[in-house]
Amino acid sequence: MPAISCHDLVVRYGTRTAVDGLSLQAEHGQVLALLGPNGAGKTSTVETLEGYRRPASGTVRVLGLDPTAEHRALVARMGVMLQRGGVYPVMGARRALRLFARYYSDPEDPDALLELVGLGAVASTPWRRLSGGEQQRLSLALALVGRPEVVFLDEPTAGVDPEGRLAIREVIGALKARGVCVVLTTHELPEAERLADEVVILAGGRAVARGTVAELAAAGPGPAIRFGAPAGVDVAALAIAVGAAPGDVTEERPGQYTVKGESSAGRVAAVAAWLDAQKLPLADLRTGSGSLEDAYLEAMRAEKP
């Protein structure tokens, strides 16, 4: 039995459709990332799995339970991190964790959790005086205090500094190793790339691409040389200089160029030599097949009419 599954899920707010026929599933010990721009339906999907919203149609199961009808049974086994807020503004981290621990029959040790997310030094500071990153880490700790079997993290790294990101990544890695199913939403591609076993890219409430990070990257654009240079470079002249077909050198976005085809050292040298001859600077040179970012941008482009 998968840890979470939804089939043909539709979520509506009045006449607006936020999620439009989405199916997905994740197993125990798996990290599933829902990726997509704002308004893609990520939070609506997660909040339906958490039992906050009732699907307009479709079926949703978390640990085999219906999240709304069997909410009482589910909450004891589920951990939730909301996109923002969720803690009494006057309450410190230690007090909040101790309070939440008493909601569960076999909780984690609040003090150990506090150290795990690196909040030991600010344990008594009221929530409203914590930094954004500290608030996120406390929310994460609160999601874990009940030893959940499935954890939902809505934008866990939003507003978190690099050190905090590292802490959050380590915690998610440890959850996975323990067999916990982690569902996270993000619009930060590097986070999804590092954390997720499985990625579903959402747009307009539908899945537009899915697979492992490697699968998505491989399915994206083929091998190419990608680089940054001033906008408006003569791509036709560059194509001739490097021996590429005319349409294979493109300016993807202003100042972002792609030379499709094999990305050998010789070809890289040819690109660099041509830019040098034009007295143009070269930045962000990458070679090889596409990244998750390329796959994501391609999926988004395909969505736009």
């Binding site: 039992g51 004891a76 909301l82 807020g85 969720g86 803690v87 503004p89």
Partner: peptide, 12 residues
């Protein structure tokens, strides 16, 4: 502040 919402997904 979203406190009630958060409590809604605990066993409280």
């Amino acid at each position: 502040y979203g406190v009630l919402k958060r409590l809604g997904s605990t066993p409280l």
